[in-house]
Simulated scan of single mutants.
Amino acid sequence: MKLIFAGTPEFAAQALRAIVAAGHDVALVLTQPDRPAGRGMSLQPSAVKKVALDNGIEVFQPLTLRDAEAQAKIAAIGAEVMVVAAYGLILPQVVLDMPRFGCINIHGSLLPRWRGAAPIQRALLAGDAETGVCIMQMEAGLDTGPVLLRGAFPIEASDTTATLHDRLAELGAKLAVEALGKLPLPAEQQPAEGVTYAHKIEKVEALIDWSKSAAELDRHIRAFNPFPGAQALFGGQTVKLWQATPVAGEGEIGTILAVDRGSVVVACGAGALAVSELQKAGGKRLPVQQFLAGHPLKVGDHFDLPA
């Protein structure tokens, strides 16, 4: 099948690899312009661009798809379908209508739950029991189109955004190839009930509020791993918390109840949190024993409470 692929991060790159491996004719790849990154802040290509270049596929990096020149380039391909995954640009209706089979999107949630930008983090924060991928026929609304294929799996107690991302990317790639092999597929309209929006993650959300329950804070830490990292304040300094387990315990909120080689136990609004991996600003992620060697914490110390 002759197609155009539009995507930017690693989640999308995995799908592009699978589509190329399945033998489809990827005639053009759309991806975001190169962005400054790393210590030197030099321009870096997206994960999708790297895959495209490795496979000799033409890359197009427009700032918008609303101008006539960009639209003419896409139309000239004569693609049967466009596959979109975490692209980052709005596709106007004229572009959605260009391919014979329209545009299909790989979305990392069980629609209509978690439409929008951050479905993985929102599912974790909400304590959802499962997540998955929907292959959706795109329309002008935000993730409102009918679903062509879906796959689901349980969210484990140890899952982080990083681990869920990898499992969802793998499932999304598999379903995208399956969908391409079966087009046209029957379309299942999304129900009006159960719609939720996965708003973009803001860094300010990463700050830990110790008045919440240990179960909520456990999900919080896992949801913000790897970005931007759950943040606690101690003596006015930021400390990132990377790994923790809810445990029994009670005391004044934010107070350290116990310290040993394996964890620092902190009182929460309900229960306590045994923190086992921390990172001071400018430092490395460290297991508790190594962290305590340079940053002694003791029973009775308090983490700062949000203002």
Rank of each mutant, 00 (worst) to 15 (best):
E216W: 04
P154F: 05
L292N: 13
Q93A: 12
F153D: 12
H165K: 12
F234P: 05
A117S: 15
L183I: 13
Q231I: 15
I155P: 03
L96M: 15
L91E: 01
G235S: 01
L273F: 13
L278S: 15
G269R: 05
A75M: 15
V275R: 01
P228G: 09
G172T: 15
R167A: 03
M138D: 02
E252G: 10
L30N: 01
A267Q: 14
A52D: 01
G229L: 02
A198T: 03
T196G: 02
S46L: 01
A18D: 11
L207G: 00
Q289E: 14
Q61Y: 06
L183D: 15
E188A: 15
H220T: 09
L286M: 08
A258W: 05
P45H: 01
A267N: 09
L286S: 06
N105C: 11
G116W: 13
S263Q: 11
I221L: 11
F101C: 03
G235W: 02
L185C: 08
W114N: 08
A6L: 01
I221M: 12
Q189D: 14
S211P: 00
G116T: 05
A244K: 11
L180E: 13
I135A: 01
Q237C: 05
A75P: 04
L217F: 07
L183T: 10
G23I: 05
L111I: 10
P186K: 02
P191D: 07
H165E: 11
R122P: 04
A52C: 00
V177W: 12
A47F: 12
C103Y: 00
Q14R: 14
R39Y: 11
V20L: 03
L110V: 15
I221S: 07
A281N: 14
A267W: 09
A75G: 15
Q61M: 07
P36H: 10
P246M: 12
A214L: 08
R66M: 11
V81P: 05
D25S: 05
T131D: 03
G116F: 05
W210V: 07
F5S: 03
C134F: 07
S263R: 02
F101E: 05
P146R: 04
L111G: 10
S213V: 05
L207Y: 07
L292R: 15
R122N: 09
L53E: 06
L233P: 09
C268W: 04
F11E: 03
A176Y: 00
L175P: 02
L164S: 10
S46H: 04
G294C: 12
F11L: 06
G262I: 13
E277Q: 10
K284I: 01
V81D: 14
T64K: 04
L171A: 08
R66F: 08
I208L: 08
Y197A: 00
